[in-house]
């Protein structure tokens, strides 16, 4: 267990986070954007678990947070997909560039 240092795991989560961010900014398809957001959430989860494990091994707070985030992410995915379906019904598209009605 001691062979993997904390910095490796942090590197993984940072990479995951910026991959998600890159996806969020470059993709125009809403479903893909949603998936990118999930990636970012998961990178946060990895951070929580890793810090819990390395800094406070006797406690479980970080794990609980990770569980909460997974739950919330599931709910958020449901809401986001509902929004996307509604958007599709009105705009006949799930491209985010087609939904720019809310402007000046």
């Amino acid at each position: 267990m001691n062979t993997v240092p904390l910095s490796h795991i942090l590197f993984l989560s940072t990479a995951l986070f910026f991959i998600g961010m890159y996806g969020l900014f470059t993709r125009r398809n809403m479903i893909t954007m949603l998936m990118a957001i999930e990636l970012m959430l998961n990178s946060v989860n990895i951070n929580f678990v890793a810090f819990n494990k390395y800094l406070y091994p006797g406690k479980l707070d970080g794990l609980f947070f990770a569980l909460f985030i997974i739950t919330i992410a599931a709910a958020e995915a449901a809401v986001a997909i509902a929004i996307i379906i509604n958007l599709y019904r009105t705009h006949r598209s799930i491209d985010v560039d087609d939904a720019t009605d809310m402007k000046y």
Partner: peptide, 16 residues
């Protein structure tokens, strides 16, 4: 007012 473009991704960019 041009900042209020209606593009969600640019808002996200400002945010980040």
């Amino acid at each position: 007012r041009a900042w209020q473009s209606g593009k969600v991704q640019s808002y996200a960019l400002y945010f980040f």
